[in-house]
Design a protein around this nucleic acid. Sequence first.
DNA 1: AATATTTACGGAAACGTTTCCGTGAATTTG
DNA 2: CAAATTCACGGAAACGTTTCCGTAAATATT
Lengths: 338, 338
Amino acid sequence: MNKINIKYLAKELNLAISTVSRALRDSHEISAATKAKVFALAKQLNYEPNPNASGLRGQKTKMIAVVIPDMVNDFFSLVISGIEKITQSKGYHILLYFTHGDHELEVSFIKTLANGRVDGVLLSMSSENNDHHHLGELEKKGIPLVMFDRVSDTLQDVVKVTSDNYESAIVATRHLIDAGCKKIAYLQVHKNIPVGKIRMKGYLDALQQHSSQAEPLVLESANDNEETFQSLKQMLLREKPDGIFASIEKLAVICYRVCEKIRLRIPEDIKVISFSNLQTASLLNPSLTTITQPAFDIGETAANELFKLINRKDKLVAAERDVVLKSRLIKGRSTARY
Amino acid sequence: MNKINIKYLAKELNLAISTVSRALRDSHEISAATKAKVFALAKQLNYEPNPNASGLRGQKTKMIAVVIPDMVNDFFSLVISGIEKITQSKGYHILLYFTHGDHELEVSFIKTLANGRVDGVLLSMSSENNDHHHLGELEKKGIPLVMFDRVSDTLQDVVKVTSDNYESAIVATRHLIDAGCKKIAYLQVHKNIPVGKIRMKGYLDALQQHSSQAEPLVLESANDNEETFQSLKQMLLREKPDGIFASIEKLAVICYRVCEKIRLRIPEDIKVISFSNLQTASLLNPSLTTITQPAFDIGETAANELFKLINRKDKLVAAERDVVLKSRLIKGRSTARY
DNA sequence: AATATTTACGGAAACGTTTCCGTGAATTTG
DNA sequence: CAAATTCACGGAAACGTTTCCGTAAATATT
């Protein structure tokens, strides 16, 4: 039950600790013969360097943090898969945190991360909150940050990876208009989600430029699904829109349920389009027309950008830039002309 | 740009390093007055203890690893959410690894984890492989392990959290039989997935006991989706089963596509049931009857069991036990009598 | 009042690694 | 052949904590 560490290897081989360490790291100042002996014993004993010791000494942890709201939809699952592809290839490890949309929790996570727990942070904000001092804490400690999807529009000096939410919202709205919709409603999540604002702006601008619809029609969802169900039902019955643009897939799903409940036929009575990464969108009844974000790609790109920052020697060059990836419109029967 | 660590706090307060450390850990041998001063300065400077130093000294990392095949389906997303709920409440951190079904990768992950990187491991196996020496490595180092869902049936001395796959498979098969199916096919994934075997045994036993069907009908899926699509299509055309039992949701989805392609009506011509945690199962066309595993619960339970092991003082007591949670049958139109 | 105990804190070792600095021996250079 | 350089390795410091051991003063005990 002997601990196998460098000291043990050194004693076993009659070498100094420093020699063993250098041999393991393939240093040029160690002879081939010695290296071979060290490697052989290390492999035989299944030696793995203690990460805490390496981290403490070298101030490198080989870990990055991924901080996201949650994983209830397929979007973040795909993003993480993209991130994992990159971290895996770089020999890095992923620490995963869920904020559950709670800003306080986000602040608390970031503070814990700011003291040498990770080499970098990938963040999708819990909510639009102009209080960004916790992110400043990261910068002060020299820990690189890349934001993705739910980014801050007020924060300037940080790398952001997003998709073309504004343009896609215009495309989606125009798609409904082209399908013959005269009264289009927009289903929005809680107001202070950053992407939400931009998407709604696309909806509003598209309406103004391409539709004769007098007034925009916006419904903000509640936190509770049942509550949202009821208010959406009321809205559909009262306003009788003929097109629905859901800003997230959960709202589209609720919309399907409401329509079934009040016997509205999709797409005959009302057409539905939604931002969504649902893999089963094409199997829904009817198949859902979606704006699909390149989620996996966003994850890959964000991770790559983060590693650029981590490996940057010259900390002074502030080459921040926004990366914007394109979403795709995938047509389903939910917006078909009939 | 001064590093704020314990040494800095001590100097600032004219105290010894050891005193500050004890004050921060709320030791009883430090006066209330001193504690107050230390806490105040620590808060003011946003001090966070360096995790590498703590980990190195105390041999505790406050991190656990979660090793799963991937996150392409909703099941593992829910499991992780359940795990996160527990780790969050215990002040622990999650390291996430995907094996992508590759046993070699699993071995490599476990080996890296075996040297003080984490306090415990939650594992859902990549594949049924009787080569378990890498897990022995964990035990040798005293790192607790809990397996969930895809567990090994040959490995005895380890805590396992699963759902009642055998019983559920019987329930599913009987459900098809009761709905009038005379020829039921079972769609299986790659042979060496452990749960797959047990589920199939349930299918076989239910057939033998409750159906007059002469021969079981089993189709093993390929790695490639398109390939699976083709072989399933061939099978449906050749064998003309009137019931399909899919062991995982991906196969049910492919089955839906095949049926649409060859104009088989669900549930009139063929009925479909599947193991699945798809949140949109009820919105499919037609709504899918599922055996739904308590995924979130599995995550919670596995994490709780792991913490029991981590916090156990008495390492000798080997109170291994299997925890089996119940799945639910959720009826949809895909198995309706017509 | 003399001794024993508690209180509140300081000093230093230890965790396992990496790397700076040194140093004999071997090799190259002028 | 002497001097300079390279080679191959050893010793020890440093990373930031936690904790064991020690100790002077304060308090409690007999």
